[in-house]
Design a protein around this nucleic acid. Structure first.
Lengths: 245, 245
DNA sequence: TAAATAGTGTCTTTTAGACATTATCAT
DNA sequence: ATGATAATGTCTAAAAGACACTATTTA
């Protein structure tokens, strides 16, 4: 069956372009917290297909620049937000013959969590991007299957929040436990019991107290400040949280 | 920037083949239980690249046959095992510029769980495939990065077994609770407490007793027989299992 | 002082771990 | 009866839910 004698000979004559391939892209759902809402960054498409619709930051792999898929996702995130080292993880891939009008296409979906910063700082030179509250996405004219990709990432985010400390990544540090609880509640879309929350987080030793209490613009007792401890990203709780609500 | 007036016009002239694309493949780690060991199905490659090495069942998307990625995975599984409706779920994607000597390549990885059946029944017409115990894979000459893909799937399998009833899928039904416990122990690679195991599974109401007890070749008290209840695939335990061992 | 926010005490509930005990079969 | 395997009883431990309570700040 093989017409070639050796691997080297085979590779010599191999030409991918002779074949039809599915399109391959990488898309990133970038989540942040702003004005007490979970928001995602969307781009208004300037090119066909789906020109004028809202889309996820993403696109094709730059085969000369990107060493791997994660690098592509990291590049897309950097181009649109300037953020260099966010929490970034793969959600999964979608591929079928109808999601892109150009033909069979596969997208590898990532999600990123970043602390919010004023639009100007993030979007210098980027005038086609803006934050949208996740619950508003359903009302937008979305490109491709990006609305359902966002849902998929949002579901993953909700699930993982129930047994990790993922929400630390949408806060600027240091933060208070109350702020962290709010972040958990928004990402999980449920109310949490204050005492249970603090007990769980504190016992897990995933935070370290930073400086002393103090700092705080408002009234009321000043809160202690915390930052994630080393290795906290990898902490897995044995039990999920917030089942009752 | 756009030279075209409409989406239709753009699509008219679009030709994917003008661009360089990464290779895209789908690979499937097929797990089963046989002779009290967790095994994976591997194929001896007959073609370049990596001719003669062991590889996962998988390959390119048939853009004319496969409606989506899952369909490709299902087709690969069917071709090698004859199994039509297994547990099949996506693990994730790997993509970089070095995993395939032909160039930048992306693979979408699936895992499948099936009940074992004698080789003849499965492999009629397939003489290049055989089951290997997972722990032996490290000693084989593996193609591409398939050894690490197997590890990734195996890790996922272990993790999910701790909060689902995934192992029901590697057993022929009906099965006894003791058999199910053995399946859990092999997939999790840990010992489980009998009473805890039974209490957990039975309280979750994910099984239904099938017929009566009886049936059993051996000595000792005959065991009750069970089959998965409807919807059991979706059952998620709030707490992981088998942390102590 | 009151209002506001941070933080604790403590009782209940759920579920896993440990391991001893009982049940039912073949021989 | 003995051995083997299935199934249960029951105590302990860990961690979440509920909610009342105390602590520390500003105005």
């Amino acid at each position: 069956m093989s017409e070639w004698q050796s691997e080297a000979e085979y590779l010599e004559q191999y030409d991918a372009r002779r074949y039809d391939w599915p399109l391959v892209s990488v898309d990133v759902v970038i989540f942040t917290l702003y004005e007490s809402r979970l928001q995602v960054l969307l781009i208004k498409r300037g090119e066909f297909p789906h020109r004028g619709r809202w889309a996820l930051p993403g696109g094709f792999i730059a085969m000369d620049e990107d060493g791997d898929l994660q690098a592509t996702a990291r590049r897309k995130l950097r181009e649109k937000t300037g953020v260099e080292a966010p929490l970034l993880e793969q959600v999964g891939s979608q591929g079928n013959d109808c999601r892109d009008p150009r033909g069979w296409s596969v997208t590898v979906l990532y999600m990123a969590l970043i602390a919010w910063a004023p639009t100007a700082e993030f979007l210098e030179g980027v005038d086609d991007a803006r934050w949208w509250p996740v619950e508003k996405v359903a009302d937008l004219e979305m490109a491709f299957d990006h609305a359902s990709l966002i849902e998929e990432a949002r579901e993953r985010l909700k699930n993982k929040t129930a047994y990790t400390v993922l929400p630390v990544h949408v806060l600027r540090r240091p933060f208070t436990l109350t702020q962290l609880q709010h972040a958990f509640e928004l990402l999980m879309d449920t109310q949490l019991e204050k005492k249970s929350f603090r007990r769980r987080i504190l016992n897990a030793e995933v935070l370290e107290e930073t400086g002393e209490a103090l700092l705080e613009g408002g009234r009321g007792r000043p809160a202690a400040l915390y930052a994630p401890a080393r290795g906290s990203e990898r902490h897995l709780f044995a039990r999920v949280f917030g089942e009752s609500a």
